[in-house]
Design a protein around this nucleic acid. Structure first.
Lengths: 152, 152
DNA sequence: ATTAATGCAAACGGTTTGCACTACT
DNA sequence: AGTAGTGCAAACCGTTTGCATTAAT
């Protein structure tokens, strides 16, 4: 049963990348990779465990975390921290982005390229600080919630 | 023994502010307030417990956290989350600032008003997002570490 | 046959909670 | 006296670790 839905890059090559390093391709790792592939750009560790359990109810947390470590070494994910303080994994090459987190509705969005550039360049020029975008989470109120609050 | 070192505002009025709300001034709360007063603008919960223990070795964590909750209600501190995901408390009126965190040397700085304004206004105009500065922690490399890395 | 990876269970660190007791007012 | 606050201990949650066992190569 060679994959019902072929995974998009970079996940399709995950197996190969692991093998090249003498690492192994296991059903558990496949589950993690599938779960990551179906995520929209960021997941917390706990969320990912959930998703893996949907694929294989017997999923063990430590296996997931260990797999994430490996995938991070391969550059397939990068970890950071969300507004609530939990570990958060950013996926894929486009995973290099910050997040907006609405404290009111809990919604989350990626910081768009334009705004991201403003932040990066602003801090570079004012402090010489080189921002690591994947670790940026900005908390506040989204447009909808801000408007709603203003009306109140 | 009326205070060897009178606390600076807003801490000096903490006792009074508590009383106005029918809350009580206890030795434990005094310790927390003293510890906060001697901090430079931000501390994690765990750090604060440490500092309180320096004042009173018998300090209990839950008391510290409960006191922080109360102080937050009074507006004397606000909590957020640092780069490592731990709770972080920002103190005082000028506590309303974001942080820069250097992943290489571990150094931490406040985001200066100018850069802060850039971030706030950038996200407001691009997404209508109202940033809560006290929750912003930007991770990356400070000027020194960035230069050192470039030389390498 | 090797040895990477898993499952399990226990530990961890920071934070939170329930409850009887203490002490501020 | 009345009730806010404390101390303690146990629980919590996400994450990490040690170790014997399993399974990919």
């Amino acid at each position: 049963m060679p994959s019902s839905t072929p995974l998009p890059e970079p996940w399709a090559s995950a197996r190969q990348r692991l093998r090249e390093r003498g690492l192994r391709w296991t059903p558990q790792r496949r589950a993690v990779v599938e779960a990551l592939a179906s995520s929209d750009g960021h997941v917390t560790g706990a969320e990912l465990i959930e998703r893996c359990r949907a694929i294989d109810p017997a999923t063990i947390p430590s296996t997931v975390y260990r797999t994430l470590d490996v995938l991070e070494e391969l550059g397939l994910v990068q970890h950071g921290h969300g507004a609530d303080g939990r570990e958060e994994f950013h996926v894929g090459p486009e995973g290099l982005h910050g997040h907006l987190h609405c404290a009111t509705c809990g919604g989350r969005w990626e910081i768009r390229a334009g705004a991201a550039r403003t932040i990066v360049e602003g801090l570079r020029s004012s402090d010489g600080f080189e921002v690591d975008l994947s670790h940026v989470t900005v908390v506040g109120r989204c447009a909808d919630c801000a408007t709603a609050a203003a009306v109140t």
